[in-house]
Simulated scan of single mutants.
Amino acid sequence: MAEPKRVLLAGCADLPRGDGDEDILLPALAEAGCKAEWIVWDDPSAPISDADLVILRATWDYASRRDEFLRWCESVPALRNPASVARWNTDKAYLAELAAAGLATVPTQVVAPGSAPDWPAGEFVVKPSVGAGSRGARRFAADDVDGAREHLAGLHADGRTALVQPYQADVDANGETACVFLAGRYSHAFVKGPMLSGASMDGSGLFVAEKVAAARPADDVLAFAEQAMDTTTSLLRLRRNELLYARIDVVRGADGTPMLLELELTEPSLGLSLAGDAAAIRMAEAVRELLDG
């Protein structure tokens, strides 16, 4: 009998075994001939050199030390998604690149320290371009430009670039639809409720608590998510199946047209616990495909 492949799931010190979403993945990996265990990404004793595959999962403390995190990613021999993808995707300025490539995205101004935005006419959001779990993101009323300037100044004082985006009102009624792809193929979806209206932090302090539920995306939302996958992989010069996972967060604009809110390729929650064992099996099969090359 062949030796099982060694797979490491990377978490962080505050969530060394993730947030529970991967609990159903571990037995599915075992069934697929993989011996899986958790590591803390910045633990120097983690056996990354002995692993057949290291999967970024709950590395949600990276935002305050992104450079260190990216150096670690580049040191891992067999990382998914790859370090080059993590470098591109952990700065949300990628939204401007996708928009320039023709993908419908939430209008985004990238505001570096020393510069100022054109404030949107209605409600809007100011958030750091490097951040996870909605930390540092705030929603402002149209007449609260002073408050927004203060928040932006705080981000800039920390040397952080910010994004300014018009708030998408449809989120209040319908949330955002997260479409999950595994090895380039659509797997499942879930809906996330609004997180910028007084939502509290998770117990770890690493992300804003979300209201989530399994969902079946509308046909036009799924078609848009497929387009987002194609645009992204073309931009990154990758084949779709080179991405072990991707989460496409879709909202509707004022005219009802789907557009991209965020594209998560580094360490997103994948909603496996919502989608059930079938999704965990698909994830394990995607891992095995990578290992078998």
Rank of each mutant, 00 (worst) to 15 (best):
A215R: 10
Q165E: 06
C179E: 00
D230P: 04
T231M: 00
H188K: 07
D219V: 02
M201A: 05
L163D: 10
K211L: 11
E150C: 06
D202Y: 03
R237L: 09
L196I: 00
D158G: 12
A214H: 09
D158F: 06
T232A: 01
R237F: 14
T177D: 15
D158T: 12
G154W: 14
E150P: 10
A214Y: 15
S187E: 10
E176L: 02
L236E: 13
D220S: 12
A162N: 11
Q168D: 07
S234K: 11
F181V: 02
G193S: 05
A173P: 02
T232Q: 12
D158Q: 04
D202S: 02
F181D: 13
Q227E: 06
M201R: 08
L152Y: 14
S197P: 00
E150W: 07
R237Q: 06
E226R: 13
H188E: 04
D170K: 15
V164N: 14
M229W: 03
D202G: 10
D220I: 09
G175C: 06
E176S: 06
L182W: 01
L222I: 05
K211Y: 02
A183F: 10
L206Y: 14
R216M: 04
P217R: 08
A215N: 08
A223D: 14
F181Q: 03
R237M: 04
H188Y: 01
A209E: 09
R185V: 05
S234N: 01
D172Y: 04
